[in-house]
């Protein structure tokens, strides 16, 4: 029961180390988000393809990714990719796994965002003889983006909160750092609590940020240039 009190000296000693690791956490989240948005768009567009077989297979791929654990997907990529001669760093593996997993979730957000565009808009675009690329770029996406912001933001925050799982493949992010500090000093209280507080702070800030982005976003959409 030696650790019942909070050791401030120890806290200040480990705080910079955890902050350094926070950079890795944030980097993984950032790269993961970019990859997830790209994957989400790809899945969403493929779900609208003309080929029924393709639509159904993408549906099940998305369903499969969404209903299996991220941690197992991380392990899968980490252990199985080298079998195919693809060796990736823990960070790259993590970004790949996060992107794939949340890409599956985001595809549903994007799909319903695109479905939310009135039929008349598609018909008008067709009447104006726009190409399919121009229809998406100039008509559909500018209107669809705003309603997608809150859900997309929430999934990115959710992704951020799942980055500690990357410690399982030795990525030196916040939790892994806290674990190492804890086991070396036989004191887990301060490092784990610090990490918890940092997560809380970051996700509250992010939630606030998303709200601001949504609020500032023009209601009538904007044109993609």
């Amino acid at each position: 029961m030696n650790g019942f009190h909070w050791d401030w000296a120890f806290t200040w000693e480990v705080f910079p180390m955890i902050l350094t690791a926070a950079k890795v956490t944030l980097l993984a989240t950032l790269l993961g988000s970019i990859f997830a948005i790209v994957m989400g768009l790809v899945f969403a567009l493929l779900r609208r393809s003309n080929s029924r077989t393709l639509r159904i297979s993408i549906y099940w791929v998305v369903e499969f990714i969404r209903s299996t654990p991220l941690l197992v997907q991380i392990f899968f990529l980490y252990y199985v990719m080298p079998e195919f001669g693809i060796s990736m760093s823990p960070l790259a593996t993590g970004v790949f796994a996060l992107g794939l997993h949340y890409g599956a979730y985001l595809s549903e957000v994007f799909r319903s965002g695109i479905d939310g565009i009135e039929k008349g808009q598609w018909e008008a675009a067709r009447a104006l003889n726009l190409t399919i690329v121009d229809t998406y770029k100039d008509i559909v996406l500018p209107q669809a983006i705003r309603p997608m912001i809150p859900a997309t933001g929430n999934y990115i925050i959710a992704m951020f909160k799942e980055t500690p799982q990357l410690s399982a493949i030795t990525l030196l992010e916040m939790l892994q750092m806290a674990k190492i500090i804890g086991s070396e000093n036989f004191r887990y209280l301060e490092p784990f609590t610090l990490v918890g507080i940092l997560y809380l702070v970051f996700s509250l800030l992010a939630a606030y940020g998303i709200h601001q982005v949504e609020r500032r976003f023009p209601k009538e959409g904007f044109s993609l240039k």
Partner: peptide, 24 residues
């Protein structure tokens, strides 16, 4: 609600498993 939704499940698990023993 805010605490458990705002932090990550794995950290909560570690906290309960590794830190609670410090409180006896």
């Amino acid at each position: 609600i805010e605490f458990f939704r705002g932090t990550s499940a794995l950290i909560q698990l570690y906290w309960i498993y590794f830190v609670l023993p410090f409180f006896g």
